[in-house]
């Protein structure tokens, strides 16, 4: 495999993990515009453990992920008192604050960035992304996922039917944060370098963009969205400076024609019926 292709597929793996970090809370109706902040927590925390304490990345990355999830719970409890646009803005502000904190944290290099000692190979990154996909597929088949959709659809009625709305919301938010932190930790160890500037608003925003583009009705949407977002600009590489403009124009037109995203429930049903009756 060429170095170029390997590089693109690694980026794809990171984008897939980020996509599911956004998708989980979105399944419960939360628009998280601060996912980059949680990636930063996972990246810096795991890098700090491997650098300063000599941990292996096999333990440091899960711990970084857990820490991001824990922050998700701690921050999620007050922040999830808000809804809708307020929640989107709160997470947006949160992402900004977290990356600004790391930018000023001299113990992890501040604005100069933070080199990381342990290395995660492309194969490790791919396996991790595949693991995240399998986990998400599993979750989407459980009652937990059903409850998330119920909360998204009608929180008042879900509550009256006995669903712990706050519990589900915090769980979805924190699990999304943990997935983001997991991706962030791998990112740090694959590129052997972290800088706070990478985890900016646009990273969060683009992730949300391709998740919605892929569609949030089914668990496959984020995967398709991430793949499209990663691979198509590469194909447009020939017209280098036009590619983001073309891509953005495409997204706008696509969403105008098909606001529910690329992969929808009815599409999946159609696909299944075809398979059963050839």
């Amino acid at each position: 495999m060429s170095g170029y292709l390997t590089g693109v597929l690694v980026v794809l793996a990171f984008n897939v993990m980020a996509a599911y970090a956004v998708y989980l809370p979105m399944a419960a109706g939360q628009l998280n515009l601060g996912i980059a902040g949680f990636m930063a927590i996972g990246a810096y925390a795991s890098a700090f453990l491997t650098n300063e304490y000599g941990w292996s990345m096999w333990t440091a990355i899960p711990l970084g992920s857990g820490l991001a999830g824990l922050m998700g719970i701690i921050i999620g409890i007050p922040v999830l008192r808000t809804h809708g646009i307020y929640l989107a803005m709160a997470t947006f502000a949160l992402g900004q604050v977290i990356s600004a904190v790391f930018l000023n944290l001299e113990v992890v290099g501040g604005a100069a960035g933070y080199p990381v000692s342990d290395y995660a190979s492309p194969q490790v990154v791919w396996a991790a992304a595949a693991g995240v996909v399998v986990l998400m597929l599993y979750i989407s088949r459980t009652r937990f996922a059903l409850c998330l959709t119920a909360v998204k659809s009608d929180a008042t009625v879900a509550d009256l039917l006995g669903v712990s709305v706050r519990g589900m919301q915090v769980a979805a938010f924190a699990l999304g944060a943990a997935v983001a932190g997991f991706g962030g930790g791998l990112y740090a160890h694959h590129y052997n370098f972290v800088e706070a500037q990478h985890f900016n608003v646009l990273l969060s925003v683009f992730t949300v963009l391709y998740v919605l583009f892929g569609g949030t009705q089914t668990v496959w949407g984020p995967l398709v969205g991430a793949a499209f977002f990663t691979l198509v600009p590469e194909l447009l590489r020939a017209s280098d400076q036009w590619r983001y403009a073309v891509f953005a124009a495409f997204i706008i037109l696509f969403m105008a024609v098909r606001p529910q995203g690329l992969v929808t429930t009815s599409l999946m049903t159609l696909f299944r019926r075809r398979r059963v009756t050839p």
């Binding site: 009652r143 059903l146 409850c147 879900a158 039917l161 669903v163 009705q217």
Partner: peptide, 17 residues
């Protein structure tokens, strides 16, 4: 107040919650 993001069966499953 049925949940519009869910199928009929899924609405009932939420009822069992």
């Amino acid at each position: 107040r049925l949940m519009s993001h869910l199928s009929v069966l899924e609405n009932l499953l939420v009822g069992q919650h």
